[in-house]
Design a protein around this nucleic acid. Sequence first.
DNA 1: CGCATACTTGAGCGAAATCAAGGCCTGTGG
DNA 2: CCACAGGCCTTGATTTCGCTCAAGTATGCG
Lengths: 252, 252
Amino acid sequence: MEDHLAQPPPDRAFKCNIGPEHEASAHCDTCAARHIGLCDAMIDADLSQLATVAHWCRIPKGHIFLAEGDPAQNFFNLNRGNAKLFKNLPDGRRQIVGFVAAGDFIGLAANNRYSFTAEALTDVRLCRFDRAELRALFMEFPILERRLLEAASRELVVAQAQMLLLGRKSAMERLATFLLNGTTSQGSRRNHTVVTLPMPRSDVADYLGLTIETVSRTLTTLKQRHVIEISCDYHISITDRLTLTNLAAGLS
Amino acid sequence: MEDHLAQPPPDRAFKCNIGPEHEASAHCDTCAARHIGLCDAMIDADLSQLATVAHWCRIPKGHIFLAEGDPAQNFFNLNRGNAKLFKNLPDGRRQIVGFVAAGDFIGLAANNRYSFTAEALTDVRLCRFDRAELRALFMEFPILERRLLEAASRELVVAQAQMLLLGRKSAMERLATFLLNGTTSQGSRRNHTVVTLPMPRSDVADYLGLTIETVSRTLTTLKQRHVIEISCDYHISITDRLTLTNLAAGLS
DNA sequence: CGCATACTTGAGCGAAATCAAGGCCTGTGG
DNA sequence: CCACAGGCCTTGATTTCGCTCAAGTATGCG
């Protein structure tokens, strides 16, 4: 009956990797320019100014680089790889609140302290921005703020769709929705679209508010109904998109 | 088996109330200045410029003033009253993604089209801003964008907490969390805090991803355990905050 | 080879949904 | 004034979907 709530997750010793000792060496100009999504807007501006506040770092797979409750000092832009963002309950239950891919920002949803923990799903490269320094830069390049506002708006839309999923959809509807979402970003041809999951079943379960057993059983059912095919655990091909779409909306 | 998804909700005829015919009459200077939360920041600026793009309107209780799927042309700041924001599934299942009170923005979570429907819980007064006009104003007052970014960040934090609730918490934990959240904004003294719910049980259920029966049963249990007292349906007083806090975290 | 990790499958259970009935309040109309 | 209808809430009985517990299988690695 002890209070686990305020405790940091177990294996965040790695956090030192984005501490001062690793970052003084190399500012990431290309990353800063390319991945903060401002190439076009700042084409005439002095990009070196942005580069001065951007520091790159690499996070190995499985490591936590940002913990719920920590002071929100940094702001990240994921450059390469995938990461998951999650919240925990004292007894270990976990909810993944989002997955991030290349180009995504991490830390928008932070005022004083981070509201979630971030863990690398693959080896990850990211740009770190000090929030205070970035804020100073906002003065000079207000367009920066606009981009972040747009990103936050998109995240809010996604979050609301996820609330509908978690609050009202059945296990089958959740899986169908999840699989379809995985295709939109990766060339959505009619049929035989391949969804690549960069995460194990346990993360799918924690994202959809289910258990791994239910995820597994539901995927098996979809397989038996010839809606999907599972080549290996991380590659699922959609063979009947129409049925999957109907299932996602709860129409069958 | 028809497609209800794209259809607007039934009773949004009222939307005309925020159409051109009602708004030419009175620009809401005080509202624009006071409620966009910029008094301090724009103290030296020409507030009339903001007022030129702000139009007030009144929405009677129960009416929908913004529908999921509609082009996101406007942006609102709620001035008085309460509203609920929700998403529907084709078969009628509903998820409330948020409640808004005085001072809150509506429409941050919109890129091209609104991602939810908004309905007045009480008589509502709000400021409407045309997004295009507002965007022009951003050029002059970049601080505006900063405020919106901060608001969006806060909303994201709340949304993520709600995902944890919907995905992983039990009915009792959901209700306890909900009641406690209701107190933070309204003077949270130790005990005997009164939570005023501006919405019926059905909305609580739709917000927490439960049925009205489960909400009712759970509240009854809390009453029987002397954790809360229900004077009337819309006024719940918390008599044992410690127990409620433990219940919210799943500790008992 | 043994072990660990991840996934699948089955049996049984339980929390919340569903179905159904009844109470309480408000407003309306005879 | 009462009768009645319609919301809204509560309570009870039953069902069900997904969870828990428990094997069992496949794959990768030292």
